[in-house]
């Protein structure tokens, strides 16, 4: 049977919060028996947008990561719940039964992604339900995907085999695959949030006038082996992305046929902007 999946492109999310607000609009003060009890007015983020800032001025980028219930195929919440209070439907959507989950706070702590929220007033565990109540009425996609103005979110109802092909062809990833829960929420360009970069600018001093040096050859090496190579752009900038956080010592070698060569040693913790390097 075809199952629902959500694909989020981190590079396209601009933090507009339409998905967050659509979810609030759908659930705050609204009861959907069998699907979800009303969301409280404050404190819950069934869709939670996280921010990551990388680098320092002038080389900074921001990434926003919308997170929500991953609708896991091996969901710890399903395992933790008693009496079938949490179950996965044949279409892949995980539902916390608002009636059966009454008083079962352990469901909240079972989620390694912290995507389940406790409703103090109603004494029930709650989370994003992929808008199952709407899909069951014939909706073609959940509200978060419908309202996303940049197309950063899209839903896909597909056989698992089809989905595997999409994951391969679009290089999709899931959050924390090491949890082993098999999420159905996939991310594209996740490196924008998870990985680091080493960047810098190259310039030459021409008798007191500083010029950006375009076309300098920049090589990133680690332990003597070349990792990547780039040419500086019109602003003399280079940026090696998708490096692992805290991955240690790198060497950045900058060469230009008529301006010589310089090597910078880098110890990579978080993303780093190396500033301006002057060639002769």
């Amino acid at each position: 049977m075809k199952k629902w999946n959500l694909i989020i492109d981190v590079a396209k999310c601009t933090n507009c919060n339409n998905c967050f607000l659509a979810n609030r609009d759908e659930h705050v003060d609204n009861d959907f028996p069998g699907y979800a009890a009303p969301q409280p007015r404050q404190g819950h983020r069934w869709i939670d947008i996280l921010r990551r800032e990388r680098g320092r001025a002038p080389m900074i980028d921001m990434a926003y990561l919308p997170t929500m219930c991953n609708q896991c195929d091996q969901a710890p919440c399903v395992k933790a719940s008693r009496d079938g209070a949490v179950y996965q439907r044949p279409d892949g959507i995980v539902i916390i039964d608002p009636r059966l989950a009454q008083g079962k706070k352990e469901i909240v702590s079972s989620c390694p992604y912290h995507a389940i929220w406790w409703n103090e007033e109603r004494s029930v565990a709650q989370k994003w339900i992929f808008d199952a109540h709407l899909l069951d009425q014939g909706w073609k996609e959940p509200r978060c995907a419908q309202v996303c103005p940049t197309g950063a979110m899209r839903s896909l109802k597909a056989e698992d085999v089809e989905m595997e092909q999409v994951v391969q062809s679009e290089a999709l990833e899931v959050l924390h695959p090491e949890f082993g829960t098999k999420p159905r929420v996939y991310y594209k360009n996740l490196y924008r949030f998870m990985k680091c970069f080493v960047g810098g600018s190259v310039a030459v001093d021409r008798n007191g006038t500083v010029d950006c040096l375009e076309g300098a050859d920049v090589t990133l090496a680690r332990g003597g082996a070349k990792v990547a190579q780039q040419r500086t752009d019109a602003y003399g900038d280079f940026k090696f992305d998708r490096l692992d956080q805290g991955s240690g010592a790198y060497a950045v070698e900058i060469t230009h046929p008529s301006h010589g060569k310089k090597t910078i040693e880098v110890q990579l913790g978080e993303s780093q902007y190396l500033g301006t390097t002057y060639l002769k």
């Binding site: 933090n15 919060n17 967050f20 609030r24 404050q42 983020r45 921010r51």
Partner: peptide, 11 residues
């Protein structure tokens, strides 16, 4: 609306 993180912060 107040719960949008870049809008207001509850202290």
């Amino acid at each position: 609306m107040d719960d949008v993180k870049d809008h207001r912060i509850c202290i």
